[in-house]
C-alpha cells in the first residue's frame, strides 16, 4: 500500500495546483494548470526542436556521467591508496568541490564556446566529486581482516584488487554515481540555459519561455527532465539492490558526499 499512499500525495499536489489556477489565485499564463501542462507534455514528442534538445541533453548527460565515473573511480583509487598524494591534493579538492558548477558556466562558455563540449565538461566537473570522494573514502573502509585473510592465502595483488577491494567499495561507488547522475543533469541543463544558440532541453525551455512566453511548454519540458531524473535514480537503486544487496549497510552509510 505505500505505493498508493505515495500516489495519493502526488494526486493531491496536482489537484491543489489545478485549483490554484482555476480559482484565479495565480495567473494561469505564468503558472498554467497541470491539465494543460500534461497535454502539452504529450505533444512535446511531436516537436522536432524538443526531441533534438532532449536527445542532445540525454546523450551529453550519459557521456558526462561515464567520464565522471571513470575519472572519479580512477583518481579516487589512486588518492585512496597513496596517502601522501591524498594529503597534497585534498586542499585543492576541498576548494574545487564546493564550487557551484553553475557559477562556472560563463567561464566555460568563454573558454570552450557554446557547443556540446562545454556542457559535457561542466557536467563532468560537477559529477566527478561525489564519485571520487566516495571511492577514496571507501578504500579506507575495506575491512583489514578481509584483506589480511586473503593475504594469508597468498592471493595475488591483482586478484586482491579485483576480487576483494573493488567489490568491497562497489556499494559506495554506486551511491556516488547515483548522486552524481542528478548533479550532472543539473549542470548540463543549466549550461544549456545560459549558452545561447545551443541545442538541449535547457535552451529549448529558455527560448520557449522568454521569446514565446509559453510557460506550458516550459513546464512540460521541466516535467520531462524531472521524470528522467526520477527514472535514472530508481534504476540505480534497483541495480544497487539487485547486485550489491550484501552491501545494503555499506551503501546507506556510504553517502559521504551527499
Amino acid at each position: 500500500m505505500p505505493f498508493v499512499r505515495k500516489l495519493a500525495g502526488l494526486v493531491g499536489f496536482l489537484l491543489l495546483w489545478e485549483a490554484a489556477g482555476r480559482l484565479g489565485l495565480v495567473d494561469a499564463r505564468v503558472l498554467p494548470p497541470p491539465s494543460e501542462v500534461l497535454v502539452r507534455f504529450g505533444l512535446l514528442f511531436t516537436d522536432r526542436g524538443f526531441v533534438a534538445g532532449a536527445v542532445s541533453t540525454v546523450l551529453s548527460w550519459a557521456i558526462a556521467l561515464l567520464c565522471a565515473t571513470v575519472l572519479g573511480v580512477g583518481v579516487g583509487l589512486l588518492l585512496g591508496s597513496v596517502p601522501a598524494l591524498r594529503l597534497i591534493t585534498m586542499p585543492v579538492i576541498e576548494f574545487l568541490r564546493p564550487l557551484p558548477s553553475v557559477a562556472l558556466i560563463p567561464l566555460a562558455i568563454a573558454l570552450l564556446g557554446t557547443q556540446a563540449q562545454t556542457k559535457i565538461v561542466l557536467g563532468v566537473f560537477a559529477a566527478t566529486w561525489p564519485i571520487l570522494l566516495n571511492t577514496s573514502y571507501a578504500l579506507g573502509e575495506v575491512d583489514p581482516r578481509l584483506l589480511e585473510t586473503v593475504r594469508c592465502f597468498r592471493v595475488s595483488r591483482w586478484r586482491r584488487l579485483v576480487g576483494v577491494t573493488l567489490p568491497s567499495i562497489g556499494p559506495f561507488v554506486l551511491t556516488g554515481v547515483r548522486i552524481s547522475a542528478s548533479i550532472a543533469l543539473i549542470a548540463i541543463v543549466g549550461t544549456e540555459f545560459l549558452a545561447g544558440g545551443s541545442i538541449g532541453l535547457g535552451q529549448y525551455a529558455f527560448v520557449q519561455g522568454t521569446s514565446g512566453g509559453r510557460m506550458d511548454v516550459v513546464l512540460a519540458a521541466t516535467v520531462f527532465a524531472g521524470l528522467f531524473g526520477c527514472l535514472v535514480n530508481a534504476g540505480f537503486l534497483a541495480v544497487q539492490r539487485r547486485w550489491v544487496s550484501w552491501g545494503s549497510v555499506a551503501s546507506s552509510s556510504g553517502e559521504v558526499a551527499a
Partner: peptide, 26 residues
Amino acid sequence: VVFQDYSRSLLPWRTVAGNVEFPLRD
C-alpha cells in the same frame, strides 16, 4: 589461517563454494 571473526574473513559477495574456491585460483 582460520580467524575468530568468520563474518569479516569471508567475501560477502561470493557464494560458499566461491569463497572456498577463491584462494585456489592462485
